[in-house]
Design a protein around this nucleic acid. Structure first.
Length: 490
RNA sequence: GGCGGCGUAGCCAAGUGGCUAAGGCAGUGGUCUGCAAAACCAUUAUUCAGCGGUUCGACUCCGCUCGCCGCCUCCA
């Protein structure tokens, strides 16, 4: 099977092709660091983390570059508000970004260039564009001549005439054409500034990525990613800059992920409807957020809500409970001579898990379908464990344990089931416990009293205690090894 | 207005023209249990926004209508 990926450039799912056999060069647009990251940023980082991990699992070598935009109008404005330098502000939020990424268990890309470290590479490209007559200096700024790039609009499916007609961009006297975009901005007093052949200034946003991708991945590379909102103008402009400067195709496959929405509206700072990553991680285990993010295919919108997070938590718990159950099985309790009790249908489901997972993931990284396969396999594993006799066949135990090993290996590609199952279930319990009023020692005292009542067959009092605990969101579970309790989700 | 996407059960969500429309959450019935809970079993879409068309056959392709969303300005 080959991996098929939706390419924004062609509008179709295409078999993955690489310029060098077995090697994928990937560039992803990272954050502009001027504030804490919200869940939308988390989705972006998670999506490409999953993609890179899957490609590596499929034996591709991946060179993954993700940049930081650390110079930009918003950074300058925010730094002014906070009375610090834009450099300090950008550095601070890069540190905060790493804190969030580490908590989410996201691997670092291979290369993480910062815009301010690559000014020379940017002025070099701008110079090349000016030499080719594709850029012009106007006042202290340098602009790109959109009319000189005939393929402008090929990524976003627009044409220049329509865009000019509907242009909503503020009129800028300096520009020859309203669609021309800035490559170099002359500096205003008090702004960070770098020297250039066109006077002191700073780079425009789009040129960063053209310069840094060329430095680290070459003039033509395999894959470029980002959010759907970057298709126009950012990625369109990158193509225009890079292809005009290099005279070569820029990127083979463009990968764009969907937004996180709240009540079906895009999460954004201007609407004020965003939640930061740390807001979420305050209430939920990081794997719950990951599970939630991967419950939908990466290109579709993902609507955030408390109830969706609760559903995700319940689902993930189900997976962990299965793992815990199988890990509790003692291989020494199995005997060679016992007959298998596994039914064929379950054996097939468990045995084909990896192949089915690959089919789902090969189809444009369909994590939603892949999660379905996890659950389908878990159902088969749970059913098999349930049917195990007191002296089970050793082969059955070995088979189920290998099923769980496979499950964990595959789930790890989405960053799931990385924790020890018992620890995870305990951590979830503690998290929920911290949000209610009852104390753990009180619970244990009440359980002890209830168990005495149960021995005495005082069912009335025993049920009273259980109801009391339930009123405090504590649910009891009487098992062969004693009474366990869980915090009921409200 | 231009361009793009989406509309599948109470909610979420797969489904790359053809075997019984995955899976999760929630619900209901059963097994287990003193009763519960968990787990397991069973069950929940004659139907895929609506209407036409292509086809031997369409949730899947085409057209129109309705509804929602995004981009066109910084944006993951």
């Amino acid at each position: 099977m080959t991996i098929r990926i939706y390419n924004t450039l062609s509008g179709k799912r295409e078999p993955l092709k690489t310029l060098e056999p077995g090697h994928i060069k990937l560039y992803v647009c990272g954050i502009t660091s001027y504030d804490y990251c919200h869940i939308g940023h988390a989705r972006s980082a998670l999506a490409f983390d999953m993609i890179v991990r899957y490609l590596r699992y499929r034996d591709y070598k991946v060179t993954y570059v993700r940049n930081f935009t650390d110079i930009d109008d918003k950074i300058i404005a925010r730094a002014k508000e906070q009375n610090c330098s834009s450099d300090e502000l950008a550095k601070r939020f890069i540190d905060e970004f790493y804190i969030d990424m580490d908590k989410l268990g996201i691997d670092r890309p291979d290369i993480e260039p910062k815009a301010t470290d690559h000014i020379a590479e940017m002025t070099e490209i701008i110079g090349e564009l000016i030499d080719k007559g594709i850029a012009y200096q106007a006042g202290n700024d340098v602009y790109y001549v959109v009319d000189r790039f005939p393929e402008y609009g090929k990524l976003s499916g627009r044409n220049l005439e329509e865009m000019k007609a509907g242009a909503r961009i503020a009129v800028n006297e300096q520009k020859h054409n309203p669609m021309d975009f800035v490559l170099w901005k002359g500096s205003k007093p008090g702004e960070p500034t770098w020297d250039s052949p066109w006077g002191p200034g700073r780079p425009g946003w789009h040129i960063e990525c053209s310069a840094m991708s060329r430095k680290y991945l070459g003039t033509t590379f395999d894959m470029h990613g980002g959010g759907k909102d970057l298709i126009f103008p950012h990625h369109e402009n990158e193509i225009a800059q890079s292809e005009a400067a290099n005279g070569k195709p820029f990127v083979t496959t463009w990968v764009h992920h969907g937004f996180v929405t709240i009540r079906d509206e895009k999460m954004s700072k201007s609407l004020g409807n965003f939640l930061t990553i740390r807001d979420i991680l305050f209430h939920y285990h990081p794997e719950i957020l990951r599970f939630f993010v991967f419950s939908t295919q990466y290109r579709n919108p993902l609507d955030f809500s408390e109830s969706a997070m609760q559903d995700a938590a319940s689902g993930l718990e189900r997976l962990y409970k299965c793992v815990a159950g199988v890990e509790d099985l003692d291989p020494d309790s199995g005997v060679e001579e016992a007959q298998t009790v596994l039914i064929d249908g379950d054996k097939i489901k468990i045995g084909s898990m990896e192949e089915r997972f690959q089919n789902a993931m090969d189809n444009d990284f369909n994590t939603a379908q892949a999660q379905g396969i996890f659950f389908d396999s878990v159902k088969a594993i749970n059913r098999s464990v349930k049917n195990l006799p007191t002296t089970p066949a050793r082969t059955d135990i070995v088979f189920l344990k290998s099923g769980v090993t496979t499950l964990k290996k595959l789930a790890d590609i989405m960053g799931l089931l990385r924790e020890d199952a018992r620890d995870f279930l305990t951590a979830i319990k503690q998290q929920l416990l911290s949000e209610i009023t009852i104390d753990e020692t009180v619970i244990n005292t009440m359980i002890a009293e209830r168990n005495q009542c149960r021995i005495d067959k005082n069912w009335v009092r025993s049920d009273e205690i259980r109801d009391e605990l339930l009123a405090n969101n504590i649910e009891l579970k009487d098992g062969p090894t004693g009474t366990e309790w869980t915090v009921k989700k409200s």
